Computed example of a mutant assay.
Amino acid sequence: MVAEGTFFRILDAYYIALVQECWEKNRAAILHRLRQEEHVVVLGDGRMDSPGHCAQYCTYTTLEQESRDIVHIVTIDKHETNRNSVIIEKKCFIRTMDALIQEIPVTEVVMDAHPQISALLNPERGRYKEIHQSLDIWHATKNLINALKADMLTCLTVLMMWHGVLRHVRNQHSWATGCCEHEPLDEGSQNKPWIQPAAHQALTAIVLDKRWLSQVKKFINFRDASTVMQLHMH
């Protein structure tokens, strides 16, 4: 069989250039299609080559929401960030967005709750303040399930409905500022045990958590970025 060095020389001479040509051709066709759209939603996620603060490289991949087509890939060496691994994903995102907004009408980005990148998308003072940020609903659900343990969680649409959870679990389905969205409960459902004061106090702390309430509007579009995360795992 061929030696390792020979194998990589064959890749360099024949394979890599062919893959690059195929990628550029397919990407050009995808971008041409997306330029015809008024609004494009993209999913973004970064993958480090190693965990913690010792990462050398970060690859940031961006997919289009509807088709799940890859629209951009960028890899950055931490030498480009003065060997600072902490900001390497932020650097990848900036390079990605600076390129994409020149090519397609990006109006929304779906991602995890990366604080440095969230600051870039701040609607008042962010570098990309005209682009709406949606947080990945899978991460939110996982975090809430960890907090709520075995409790059931009703899907949210607005902040008022979220606050209404605290009343519903006490068998209070209408109040001065709103009401539950479900149909009237039948007589049999009234016999089930409702939440007790101690458990209700713990639930209240979760529902009214300031950090969660400050971000809940970013989950209203119910976006899911799991596809790009799964891509990085393979």
Rank of each mutant, 00 (worst) to 15 (best):
Q172Y: 09
Q230Y: 08
R223G: 03
H72C: 08
T96C: 15
V216C: 08
E4S: 12
N26G: 02
I104M: 03
C22W: 07
V86Y: 10
D49W: 09
L18Q: 13
E64G: 11
R47W: 08
A55W: 08
Q190W: 13
Q65A: 09
Q230G: 05
L43C: 13
T157F: 04
H200V: 01
F8V: 07
L135C: 00
D69A: 10
E21D: 11
K210C: 06
E21M: 06
R170K: 14
Y128N: 03
V169Q: 06
A17D: 13
L156K: 07
E80Q: 12
R211G: 06
R170W: 02
E103D: 11
N221D: 12
R9E: 13
F219S: 00
P51K: 03
H79E: 15
H173D: 02
N143D: 02
H114A: 07
T6Y: 01
P193Y: 01
E89M: 09
N221M: 10
H232G: 15
E108D: 09
Q102N: 12
M1Q: 04
S174I: 12
Q215S: 14
Q172A: 02
V106C: 01
M229N: 10
E66N: 13
L18R: 13
V106R: 02
A198D: 14
W212K: 02
A55V: 02
R9L: 03
Q116C: 07
T75V: 09
L231V: 03
H53C: 05
V169E: 09
R68T: 11
T204W: 04
V158N: 09
L34T: 06
P115K: 09
V106D: 02
